[in-house]
Simulated assay, not measured.
Amino acid sequence: MTTPYTIEVKAYQGGGTTHVPYAPPKKQVTEAEYWEKYYDYPDKNYEWNNGFLEEKPVSEHVTYLTFVWFLELVNHYLKTHSNADLAGLEMGFRMVLSNKMNIRKPDFGVVLKSNPNPLLPHDSSYHGTFDMCIEAISESSAKEVTRDTVTKKAEYAQAGVKEYVILDGNGNHTAFYHLNTNGIYVPVKPSKGDIIKSKVLPGFQFRIADLYKKPSPEEMINEPVYQGFVLPGYSEAKKAKQEAEKRADKAEQQTILEKQAKEKAEKRAEKAKQQILLEQQARQHAEQQAKQLAKKLRELGINSDDI
């Protein structure tokens, strides 16, 4: 039998159904109750806002695709630099703020290896403050937009999240913030070519337009913006292959030149040989003529030595 606060859910194994608590909008629960019943709720994704449950809305597919591309880009960076860990799969963290207490689940978060609270392999929630939070916005209502662009922005800043990224596949609310020394989020100013550079992840950068174009890794490896961390091994291997091909071409050209030089030398030697042969033949012919002349002179009684 169900109650106003339970829903029927199919069991994963063995068939049958079970009943789990269902939270209507603005349901008030204690923090302990949230962690126990709602943090890993089976079919809804809840955050806890100062005693009240808030359901995380679903983003449009276009925003999801932008989110996936950005997540893959961060993964490429971390494979190269290994200076941080990623938190996803609805992992939450607790924020004690000046006027309230919250538990938020960013769509994914970044924890630097230098963070005093490391992200451990078996953690199901993060017991520190993320260094970077990324939210894929939902435009289902003005309230949901405000929650990401105003409410969470203020909360993350006060909690000390160093960078906050809002992704919107439609480009309406995409934003990039860095926490200044006064604890206030300031927009990250794009450098030449609309390139956003992270301070939390040194060397991590991207073009704003690429959030919507979503170039493939194969397209990015030849792009200076991404060459430093997107498949750098591939780029190095490709460069090494090109250099090896150049060396092979140069060696082949050298072999051809040497072969041509050898052929020229052989032709010169053959020509010299022919010249010597002709000179020998000419000398022999001259000697034969001289002998014949001397013979005729002797027949005439003339000594050739007297001439």
Rank of each mutant, 00 (worst) to 15 (best):
D123P: 02
D123C: 05
S124Q: 14
S125E: 09
Y126V: 01
H127A: 12
G128E: 08
G128Q: 10
G128M: 07
T129Y: 01
T129A: 02
T129R: 01
F130H: 05
F130P: 00
D131G: 08
M132E: 08
M132N: 05
M132Q: 11
C133L: 08
C133H: 03
C133M: 03
E135G: 06
I137H: 01
S138I: 12
S138P: 08
S138C: 15
E139H: 14
S140A: 09
S141W: 13
S141T: 06
S141V: 05
A142W: 15
E144V: 04
V145G: 02
V145E: 10
V145K: 08
D148K: 04
D148Y: 08
T149D: 06
T149Y: 14
T149A: 13
T149F: 11
V150H: 13
K152C: 05
K153E: 12
A154T: 14
A154W: 15
E155W: 14
Y156P: 01
Q158R: 06
Q158T: 05
Q158H: 05
A159T: 04
A159D: 03
G160M: 05
V161Q: 04
K162D: 09
V165Q: 05
V165C: 09
I166D: 06
I166S: 04
I166W: 09
I166V: 11
L167K: 07
D168I: 07
G169N: 03
N172E: 10
N172G: 04
H173K: 12
T174C: 03
T174W: 06
A175W: 08
A175T: 12
A175C: 02
F176P: 01
F176Y: 13
H178C: 04
L179E: 07
N180L: 09
N182M: 13
I184G: 00
Y185K: 08
V186G: 03
V186W: 07
K189T: 15
P190V: 12
K192N: 06
G193K: 13
G193E: 14
I195A: 01
I195Y: 06
I196P: 00
I196Q: 04
S198H: 04
S198Q: 02
K199N: 06
K199L: 10
L201M: 14
L201G: 07
L201I: 15
P202K: 05
P202H: 09
P202Q: 10
P202N: 09
F204E: 00
F206M: 08
R207E: 09
I208T: 13
D210K: 11
L211T: 06
L211G: 00
L211R: 02
L211V: 05
L211N: 03
Y212R: 07
K214C: 07
P215G: 10
S216Y: 10
